[in-house]
Each structure stands twice: as structure tokens, then as C-alpha cells.
Amino acid sequence: MHRQAVSSSTIASIGYDREEHLLEIEFVNESVYRYRLVPESVYRDLLGAPSQGRFFNQKIRDVYPTEQVD
């Protein structure tokens, strides 16, 4: 999955698969996680959030099924 780099102190890059509703996040510590069943609107809101780390903690972490990739 292609991820785009973002300017965040905790998140390095973000990718999204529209067909699978799969959000992939690479953190600055180089770990990569996939979040399933994420609506595209949540992905767009994450990209546009003033603080992507805060948005992730409030709206994504512990909300969607997760698996570590790396």
C-alpha cells in the first residue's frame, strides 16, 4: 500500500485502501499498523487534522480492529 509522508511528531506516513477500508499508519519509531473497517471520511479527517497524533489517539486507536505489520 502506498503511504504518504505527513508532518507529525508521532506519525511518519499514512495510507488508505478505499476498496478494503484499510488504514495503514507508519509511526516515527518505524512500526506499521493496519486498521480495518475505517471509513474513508475518518482517513480524510486524519490527513486534515491540525494534530494527526491527537486525532489518531482520540478517533482511531482502540476503536478499529488492528494488526501490526512490522
Score class of each variant (00 low, 15 high):
residue 40 E to W: 05
residue 31 S to E: 09
residue 45 D to S: 03
residue 44 R to H: 11
residue 52 Q to E: 09
residue 35 Y to N: 00
residue 26 E to H: 07
residue 63 V to K: 14
residue 44 R to G: 04
residue 51 S to K: 00
residue 16 Y to R: 07
residue 27 F to I: 01
residue 34 R to M: 02
residue 47 L to I: 12
residue 33 Y to E: 09
residue 55 F to N: 00
residue 70 D to I: 15
residue 55 F to R: 01
residue 19 E to K: 08
residue 31 S to R: 10
residue 66 T to H: 11
residue 27 F to R: 02
residue 39 P to V: 13
residue 21 H to F: 03
residue 28 V to Y: 02
residue 67 E to K: 04
residue 64 Y to F: 13
residue 68 Q to M: 05
residue 57 N to G: 13
residue 42 V to F: 01
residue 49 A to I: 11
residue 49 A to Y: 13
residue 18 R to V: 04
residue 55 F to G: 15
residue 34 R to Y: 01
residue 39 P to R: 12
residue 33 Y to F: 09
residue 28 V to S: 08
residue 36 R to S: 13
residue 50 P to W: 11
residue 29 N to G: 09
residue 36 R to L: 15
residue 34 R to Q: 10
residue 20 E to R: 12
residue 65 P to F: 15
residue 64 Y to R: 10
residue 38 V to N: 05
residue 62 D to Y: 11
residue 47 L to M: 14
residue 48 G to K: 09
residue 30 E to I: 09
residue 58 Q to P: 00
residue 40 E to L: 00
residue 32 V to M: 08
residue 69 V to Y: 10
residue 63 V to L: 13
residue 26 E to G: 08
residue 39 P to Q: 15
residue 69 V to C: 12
residue 18 R to W: 06
residue 66 T to Q: 05
residue 19 E to M: 11
residue 41 S to E: 15
residue 22 L to E: 04
residue 34 R to H: 11
residue 39 P to K: 13
residue 42 V to Q: 04
residue 40 E to N: 05
residue 34 R to G: 02
residue 18 R to P: 00
residue 22 L to N: 10
residue 54 R to A: 12
residue 53 G to V: 00
residue 38 V to K: 06
residue 56 F to C: 07
residue 16 Y to Q: 01
residue 47 L to E: 11
residue 37 L to N: 13
residue 45 D to K: 02
residue 67 E to L: 14
residue 51 S to E: 07
residue 58 Q to F: 02
residue 63 V to N: 14
residue 56 F to P: 03
residue 70 D to K: 14
residue 54 R to I: 06
residue 41 S to T: 15
residue 27 F to V: 01
residue 22 L to K: 07
residue 66 T to C: 08
